[in-house]
């Protein structure tokens, strides 16, 4: 890994701009099922959504030590040719140097809005998630401790938990969040969601029909909160239904679409192989596998759909089919 100095990065980005997006881009993140924590999951999903919004190819690589591989110490990070870039904003900038941008048609004040609202999400939702994971005793003991320590052997797991916790606490102290109570944190999240819902104001995405990195970031946070199954946070989200609708829209049309395409391709190629070999038993296996995968997929979707009532989903599907045909 090359040493990270912003000036060097900038020069390298400029030089790299002439090269097209490579085929073997890899996105590194912690293990999704047993290791990842709420704030990291939000950031990983946000980056995935952003890259998919830009129609860029990448492969997800799960590593237990992704956090320590990252140049900034934060997940996720991408390896694109000779570059290693972590976090959403630097990745967005890097993608922009390749001439790919989701915000090129926006006015200056709209671009400012993106920055301001992204700062809001970083400052409130991210800090609240960190607070919940590391400072709320119940969540720390039941979720954070076993998950964060799951990839380390005893006694390293306790040591790692302790160091990470002290790091997070220092950060929260300086940002003025450590002195808050859990109720104050929920109140802050409520205000943030209210501000975001007001800005969304019935539109599909923040800037009309075109999605931006802000939509990707918000999707990451909302979806990972829903996956975390924290009752209080979900209750707050349910008060602002349009945020849920927004996330579901992105999930269906960007994340899901990609997943379906990939699955279809894999199945097709499997079928082709089977035809040539003409082995009936394998065909059955593939069918079985496809059935399992679609089931899995449905289960994943249920987390988000459970939170919406049926009538809302109906109204959503109308929006989907009509207005999203542009994409």
């Amino acid at each position: 890994m090359f040493p990270s100095t912003p000036l060097l990065d900038k020069i390298q980005y400029e030089l790299g701009a002439q090269e097209p997006w490579p085929k073997d881009v890899k996105l590194y993140q912690p293990y999704e099922v047993e290791q990842i924590l709420l704030p990291d999951n939000a950031n990983c999903l946000a980056v995935q959504a952003f890259l998919r919004m830009c129609n860029l190819n990448f492969e997800i690589v799960s590593k237990a030590n992704a956090e320590f591989m990252s140049p900034s110490g934060k997940v996720p990070f991408i390896r694109c040719g000779a570059f290693v870039i972590s976090e959403l904003e630097p990745i967005v900038q890097f993608v922009n140097t390749k001439g790919i941008s989701l915000t090129s048609e926006l006015e200056n004040d709209q671009k400012c809005d993106i920055r301001a609202y992204m700062s809001l999400v970083h400052n409130v939702l991210e800090n609240a998630e960190l607070y919940l994971c590391w400072c709320d005793k119940e969540t720390y003991n039941e979720v954070t401790k076993p998950r964060n320590g799951s990839v380390y052997p005893w006694p390293l797991n306790h040591l790692q938990n302790w160091t990470k916790r002290s790091h997070v606490i220092k950060r929260l102290k300086m940002m003025g969040w450590y002195s808050k109570t859990m109720d104050q944190v929920y109140h802050e999240v409520e205000n943030c969601c209210q501000a975001l819902a007001d800005r969304l104001d019935g539109k599909e995405f923040f800037f009309g029909k075109k999605y931006t990195e802000l939509d990707a970031l918000l999707y990451g946070h909302i979806y990972s909160i829903l996956e975390s199954r924290n009752a209080k946070l979900i209750a707050i989200l349910q008060k602002n239904k349009n945020l849920l609708t927004h996330s579901q829209l992105i999930h269906r049309h960007i994340m899901q679409k990609h997943f379906d395409d990939k699955l279809l391709q894999r199945l097709k190629s499997d079928h082709r192989k089977i035809k040539t070999r003409n082995i009936k038993t394998k065909a059955k296996e593939v069918e079985k596998r496809s059935h399992i995968e679609t089931n899995k997929n449905i289960r994943r979707n249920q987390t988000i759909e459970n939170t919406l009532t049926e009538t809302e989903i109906d109204s959503l599907s109308d929006v989907d089919s009509g207005d999203l045909s542009d994409y």
């Binding site: 301001a116 700062s119 400052n123 409130v124 300086m174 501000a195």
Partner: peptide, 24 residues
């Protein structure tokens, strides 16, 4: 009004996020 109130809230958060580390 509500919209302006929300906007103030967003801007104040942006200031906190970017300028608190600067003062430090």
């Amino acid at each position: 009004d509500e919209k302006q109130y929300g906007e103030s809230y967003v801007l104040i958060n942006m200031l906190t996020l970017h300028l608190n580390p600067v003062l430090e």
